[in-house]
Design a protein around this nucleic acid. Sequence first.
DNA 1: GCCGTTTTCGGCCCGACTGTTTTCAGTCG
Length: 575
Amino acid sequence: MDNQSVARILSEIAQLMEIKGENRFKVRAFENAARSVESLSEDLEALAARGELNSLAGVGKSLAADIEALLTTGSCDVHRDLLDELDPGLLDMLRIQGLGPKRIKVIYETLGVSNLSTLEAAARAQQIRALAGLGAKTEERILAEIERLSHDEGRTPLPAARAIAQSIRDKLATLSEVTKIAIAGSLRRGRETIGDIDILVASETPAPISAYLVELAEVAEVLAHGETKTSVRLVSGIQVDLRIVAPSSFGAALHYFTGSKEHHIALRTRAKRSGLKINEYGVFKENDGPAIASETEVDVFKALGLTYIPPELREGRGEIEAAAAGTLPGLVELTDIRGDVHMHTVETDGRATILEMADAARTLGYNFIVITDHSEAVRVANGMTPPRFREHIKRIREADAAYADLRLLAGIEVDILKDGSLDMEHELLADCDWVVGSIHSHFALDSKEMTQRLITAMATGLISCLGHPTGRILGGRPGYKYDLDAVLEAAVEFGVAVEINGSTGRLDFNAEHAERAHRRGAKIVLGSDAHSTRGLEDMDFAVQQARRAWLGASDVLNTLSVEDLLAAVRPTLRR
DNA sequence: GCCGTTTTCGGCCCGACTGTTTTCAGTCG
């Protein structure tokens, strides 16, 4: 059984225990263990084989035994007992906003309701409002939530959420009452999908600001409207939480509102141990008194004896220990990026010409770009035949001669065909500067065939980097199945870099894959996969995923000079 | 159920908002 499945069952156990009314700290022990397993980059099976399961944070003797049982038999006693006692449909009921374990327990025990459809029937029959502690409003809310969940599209991809958030932020920023404003939450941390949008405002007069938000045309529903905290759902379905604080506590609030939950729990536990209390208003001595830090995030971390932790690292995955020890890496920044290795032009499915892309790249301050149009197999994109590619290389080289301060490199995004062969004459691939090898067809091969397909392609020695290496589409299709470690090992062997593709639908590799690749010694390169001049700006998303993978400037090939970049890959082709 | 730079027992992050109450429990982030 894989790590994610074990984590899912552990968290299911925690949820069922909560509904059952178990001790909440016991519940949290299972939640903690689920998180530990989920963020583990090694195979749980390997850890178990070495008898080291209780080296995991939050896993003691009892949980180690449960995990062991899950790994070997696919189930464990505590899970089986809970499922015997409770209906798994209750877990779906937890997805309803405003309905938590306590109320579900009441509904379950008095009405026998144990899934969404019987819940809907009970609410329609007005049976919910008759229960103690529940009323008509809750009943209406339940019906509205069931309706919403029936066509719920789940979490929003980061790029789409960021565009919406920026638009709301810019509108709020026009108000004179707003002193400072920032997007916080998982958006600021760069998580690849976003549950809701968090916006933080500093102001002395909060009332007019939240009043303005609830009146915006894009607001479909007001979920909560308090003095300092307001939540709305937009017509697009995404929820926006606005929090307003005094300017003097903006830093503490920004930290608080950026999360993650795991980061906060770890940090507050640590603070408490040294006699400090931390909340959205600042860091306090435990006997209260004025805040000892609150104005900036740097102050907050400093008061806790920590160096500044960038938002992308705040996931409760060891960043606090590293900050305390002063060993946090200096993360790569957009300004470190000297060029882009993946983009398209009008030659295939891009919207801009070579010269237009070059001009846009120069505006971004790049030293180099690689033009990588599609090969023939991608017919919908008007992929190039060998003769067309030969001409295209010539045009790129001519354009290059016209720029003194920008190197234009000739490249291609060549298709890796079903059998692992490359969709272009090898001489042309060897002749151009950079080859992105990508899969755009036969996604459904089994893992063994797909692994072999990728390795065969890399073994040609002609590929500079694997483009969008998992093929997943954010919020669309999952990636193709293959043995990631075997492919990474081959990438190292054949001198092939792996791409973090920043285009808005992909973010592929994501941070977890990139971290794993880096640890396995594979080289990482960032590509915007731009299909227009605007698309070049998607490099920003690739950088953010790299930061989430704890990568520094020296861990990313785009920070090198052209000569060093080209020398870092395709070792057998050195000319 | 886990864990220890005050600990092997007694703790376990913190505050805002809502609905249903008449002072607060439940939920959420």
